[in-house]
Design a protein around this nucleic acid. Structure first.
Length: 283
DNA sequence: TTTCAGGTGGTGC
DNA sequence: GCACCACCTGAA
């Protein structure tokens, strides 16, 4: 296995971006942190991100990424300050969440990767999801090269997963979700479905479109729409968020109506900041 | 040994 | 529409 070559050096301004929080708020699973260095893969580029005076230094290995793609991945073109100000004026909980979560941005992750990742997330927890994803990438992803003794793998393509047997897909901790992955990959390949389609749909239509895949229900569809498609109307409700909605807002059912009315155009950002806060307080 | 974890799909009403 | 419940697996 050949070593990955450094092909690009980029910088991220610190303004309104906290890498640590952004990569550790449950929206992505393949980033790791070691000795203060964040390592991750975007498409076929291996990234190492370090703190610096101005913000963050980004080293790109393997294939060049380009500033535009990097900025897009971290949603840097969106102005969060105005949105967060409106949200923090809503109530004390939201104000606290905005304060605690300052610097969180909603990523725009590769679509097939985010679809598969969140199908794996159902009835599951983060350490296991990470374990399963790494196992899938090791078995089915293309090895991109080595760096510091570690082999980095691209995310598997729909074709490779569609052609894999259920036995082969039965990697660590995947369980009954292997069938969902197989059926989803097959649907994409056989029916020539274009994962870009939801970009051109409104939130409700896009959500219904994603739910055609086995293993994608309301919550998983909302995660995909929020972390892959930047649909800010999406408000994923898991057991913790459900409990939080009840506790903070007295909402026991019909969350969708409540969040749309209450958070207006940005339920997704509200959800992510609230989620980060309740998760942090639990730990 | 039992319970639960960042849900979904199937079933029955 | 809504309420149940089985479901892989690993950790507590």
């Amino acid at each position: 296995m050949r070593n990955l070559a450094l092909v690009e050096k980029l910088t991220l301004r610190k303004h309104e971006l906290d890498i640590e929080k952004t990569l550790d708020c449950g929206q992505c699973f393949r980033w790791t942190v070691l000795g203060g260095v964040h390592m991750g893969i975007i498409e076929r580029s291996v990234l190492m991100i370090r703190y610096s005076e101005a913000g963050y230094d980004v080293e790109v290995y393997g294939e060049p990424l380009g500033e535009k793609v990097l900025f897009n991945y971290f949603d840097l073109d969106r102005d969060y300050s105005g949105i967060l100000e409106v949200l923090s004026n809503k109530d004390d909980h939201m104000a606290r969440a905005v304060n605690v979560g300052k610097g969180i941005r909603l990523l725009k992750q590769p679509l097939f990767e985010i679809l598969i990742s969140f199908i794996l997330s159902s009835n599951n927890n983060i350490p296991k999801i990470k374990m399963t994803l790494e196992a899938l990438c090791e078995r089915f992803g293309e090895p991109l090269g080595m760096l510091d003794g570690n082999i980095f793998y691209a995310f598997p393509t729909p074709e490779i997963l569609a052609n894999a047997s259920l036995e082969a897909l039965n990697v660590k901790a995947i369980g009954y979700r292997a069938k969902y992955i197989s059926e989803t990959a097959k649907a994409i390949v056989d029916q020539k479905l274009d994962l870009n389609t939801p970009f051109h749909m409104d939130y409700n239509t896009a959500r219904a479109w994603l739910k055609q895949f086995h293993g994608v229900g309301d919550k998983v569809a909302d995660c995909i729409l929020l972390f892959g498609y930047s649909k800010m109307e999406a408000f994923p409700v898991d057991t913790w968020v459900k409990q939080m909605l009840s506790e903070y807002y007295g909402v026991e059912s019909k969350h969708e109506m409540f969040v749309r009315d209450y958070f207006k155009h940005y339920p997704g950002i509200a959800q992510q900041y609230l989620f980060y806060m309740i998760r942090k307080e639990r730990r």
